[in-house]
Design a binder for these strands. Sequence first.
DNA 1: GATTCGTGGTC
DNA 2: TGACCAAGAAT
Length: 357
Amino acid sequence: MPRRRRHSPDTVARMRQELLGWYHRNKRDLPWRRTTDPYAIWVSEIMLQQTRVAAVIDRYTAFLQYFPDIQSLAKAHEQDVLALWSGLGYYRRARMLHKAAQSVVSDHNGVMPTTAEGLRSLPGIGSYTAAAIASIAHNEPIAVIDGNVERVLSRIQGWHSHDTISEAAVRRKVDDFAQTLIDPRHPGDYNQAIMELGATICTPRNPQCLVCPWARECHTLGEHRTPKRAAMTTREIACALITRETESRTEILLEQRAAANTVMPGLWELPSIELTKSLKTAHVFTVRHAIMQVNYIVHVYSLPTESISSSAARCNWISADRASSMALTGLARKILTKAHVIPSRSRHQLPHPPSRE
DNA sequence: GATTCGTGGTC
DNA sequence: TGACCAAGAAT
């Protein structure tokens, strides 16, 4: 027996009109909405994965300035790609984007696949990103399902997992509903519109139902259940701030994380030292830095070079000027900024172009 | 299906 | 103020 249809074709048509009308009146002016270049759309979608719009805007602009097309990205050094990603997090995204660009050049004659199915075969492009690029850049009528879409549609229908309905089953219902709702004439705008609604109106907390274009269709007006998260743990660590002066410049000792490391491989950070061996007299300051489920309390010590022993194989003297444009971890960037070794990034100052010798 | 991967803004 | 979380993908 077929499931009861909750929305007639008329209702679907009205919802499309309500959403697209709201979007055209309220959409934010974002840099990736000013282009139709599939490569630029791609870069924006990778950066936006699990990352807020506000954090992406300047990084997107800088990335496209230094890698304006697939060819320039494909021939870049990975360290320079990571340098432009420094501080954004989830660095695997940058490495996969780089590898995917090389794959497009070597295996696809330099031309990106144009369908969601084709895009899906590139590293770093999953179902969401494939649908986003195909719909926005090529008008393919395929619905995106991200955290926003899942929340918006679940709230409208009052869907949530419980004893007899698994999360996967809810997800399948959301998929079906999303694909029913998408406007086949304006798939890119429709997909961006429903995400924009989730990001600005139908937010996780305190949804603005009074101004929501879909309030009339919504069964719950903002109800949403989220699973509890694992508690954060706290860990105390220490690192060494070691500088030296040459005739013309300040240099800082930095250590490159091993390529085999599962976390942030290849990125640069301050040499770590044992907490117990740190000297109180050499203490500079303490910073807090949360990475995933761990809240780090980081003690920074100013130490002589000799205190870095046998494990210093990956250490290099780096000029302060160059350090700021390298692939630093977010923590290293935070410490070097606080210690005034490198300048803080102003909002309008783009990251320096990758420099290599 | 559950884990893992970063970071900084928000309330 | 610290928990929450943001346009996911890979394994």
